[in-house]
Design a protein around this nucleic acid. Sequence first.
DNA 1: ATGAAAGCGCTAACAA
DNA 2: TTGTTAGCGCTTTCAT
Lengths: 311, 311
Amino acid sequence: MRELNYTPSILAQGMRKQRTKTFGVLIPDFKNLFYAEFLEHVESAARKHGYVGIVCSTDIDSERERDYINQLLRRQIDGLIMCWYKGVGENRAFLVQLAKRLPVVIMDQPSCGLPISAVYTDAFGGIKNLTEYFLGLGHRRIALIRALDSYPVGRKRFEGYAAALREYGIEVDESFVEQSEWTSFAASDATNRLLKRFRPTAIVAVTDLMAIGVLSCLHDKGYEVPGDISVGGFDNIAIASQTSPPLTTVAQPIDQMAFEATQQLIRRIENRRIKNRDVVLPNKLIIRESSGPPPMGEILSPSTSTITEEA
Amino acid sequence: MRELNYTPSILAQGMRKQRTKTFGVLIPDFKNLFYAEFLEHVESAARKHGYVGIVCSTDIDSERERDYINQLLRRQIDGLIMCWYKGVGENRAFLVQLAKRLPVVIMDQPSCGLPISAVYTDAFGGIKNLTEYFLGLGHRRIALIRALDSYPVGRKRFEGYAAALREYGIEVDESFVEQSEWTSFAASDATNRLLKRFRPTAIVAVTDLMAIGVLSCLHDKGYEVPGDISVGGFDNIAIASQTSPPLTTVAQPIDQMAFEATQQLIRRIENRRIKNRDVVLPNKLIIRESSGPPPMGEILSPSTSTITEEA
DNA sequence: ATGAAAGCGCTAACAA
DNA sequence: TTGTTAGCGCTTTCAT
């Protein structure tokens, strides 16, 4: 009778079965290529299971976030993936409440014992490695362009940086560090501010996007990268290999993160008795041309035999 | 009785009213920053009207596109915005069919008399201006990294390039032109192929993302931009001002395009008697540091008094 | 085995 | 005015 393309209405199905084969994805910003790649992979994982994700960008605005969560709940989503700038630890009550209604997967931070799943990589260790790599090259004046203090991801990455320096007996100086919003523009401004009071031989940015801002500022000011100043980022978004020069960075396995998050969510949607899990994935230092030894006269490392000018 | 946050289920509402306050957005790729910015603005326009968009990326795959359109229809979307790589003209029957079910807005190409709305800028004129600007600087060996022939947007942009050259009495040579997929990687490869057989003084790419690939390839090969080769793009995505060097490009008013598309869609959703419209927005040449006069010895323009070496 | 009917949460039409 | 009810398109249960 209806061999000719009949597809049941998901609305009607949803009313009856309380399942819509639809989940929500909360991200801060479409323009951050990390999330763009993340979404790409979430989408293809979801598609395999016949799910559709509704993506909402919060612009790091609490009101907008609340609105969207309501909109999503009204649409009876089956689950929610949150790329969150807020700390899980500081929002326990809210998350407990939310997790009562649907499965929740949180990105970039541990679940802190809450009834949610989490997918993240070792931000602390990643930046620590990167910073140690710079230290090993002989850099000592290593600056950090970090995120605002209120963002947990940014905080962890800051701590990795500080730990590496401390290992080399360098106490982290406030003047080494500049805060910035997540965009390349803000990071470019931050670099500007930084350079007015401090002349580093290397700059670490807590995301690739911000590192692009750093490169842009350095290019403006006429510094050579890595001749004068080395630059490192975090994420390994696709264009990190296409900047001029290509960016040294800490690669997160974005595809796996997306895959695990989606997998975890859908499994819990389809069987509530599956328990929540924290999935921790490895990240990895990728060395490209934006980094090299510090300029002559700045080499202070024991690992090189060059005599410094100050000798 | 229910003063405490009652929000009606959109599923139930949708069943009753045949309105879900939800629309679909089809894009080719989240990673293309043009769409990222577009989505950002679509979202905020939609939010003002209480609508939520479901974004699906087709990856320029027809099967996937068909799937998603079905998924969206099953979810009873009220309308659809399509950022489409296919030509409206070559898909009339499909669009007529689709437009019977819901309001449709198509991006980047005219509606060709179909019962849909359209929002676009003058791609032909935009690239023509850019190419004329290069010609005016004295460039004569101007290469083009264009999209595959099957994409209408890419085609129009190619024609603008060809028209400008023809105006200056230059017949477009196949060897000036290289085809590429939309990514920066593909464009970088295409530039590579191009440089093996042709040494331009300027390269125009049909999108900024592709221009980033061009810059990356030129940086690899040790060419100075714009000292050896000038580069131009199209779109003026946000990071176009943050590349090294910053990119000369044809700016599309992405925010307005998104706003108009959303506006147009929602108006038609809420009142079917509002007629479809083609909204054509202006674009504008933005000159940044990636472009300059051709190197000495290559200046052939009548607009300069320099005597060329060949004289 | 096949068929009828109830009900998911709403809204619009109609009755009181 | 306020209250009642039918039905949107499905699935699931229950009766045949």
